[in-house]
Each structure stands twice: as C-alpha cells, then as structure tokens.
Amino acid sequence: MSVIYVLLTISISVAVVFFMAFIRSVRAGQYDDAYTPSVRMLFEDELVPPGKENTKVKTEGENQNKDTNQ
C-alpha cells in the first residue's frame, strides 16, 4: 500500500497550505468582524443609467398584462 504514503503526503501538503492561508487571513484581520460582510454583500453597486428607470416600469406593466391573460 505504498500509494497511501503518496496520498498522505499530498493531502497533508494541501492541508498545510490551507492552514497557512487560514493563519494569514486571521492575522490580516479578515475575521475580526464576523457580521458586516454578510450585510455588505447585499448592497448593489451597479449604476443604473438615467432613463432606464422608465423603460423598467413599462416592461413590468407589460408583464402584468401577460400574467392576467394567462
């Protein structure tokens, strides 16, 4: 079963890489705040070009008509 040593070596090396990444990210303060990131990702930063707003309302209206038709 010599291949087990190959697999152990690979698996442990990968684990060590991840462990170092973990320590580094803790030290870099990635996990100091365990709440804000979950809220931050909800905000959209896409800019809506002016004029688009109108067309959007129109398409929604269209859709409603279609829904009632069905």
């Binding site: 365990a34 709440y35 809220v39």
Partner: peptide, 16 residues
Amino acid sequence: VPKAANRPVYSYRLSI
C-alpha cells in the same frame, strides 16, 4: 440565497 432573500446570512461566523 442572501441575495434572493435580501437578508444577510444567518450566521456569518458559522459560515467561516
């Protein structure tokens, strides 16, 4: 899931 529900994930700490 948070995007679709427009809610933050239940526990961010748990996710980590």
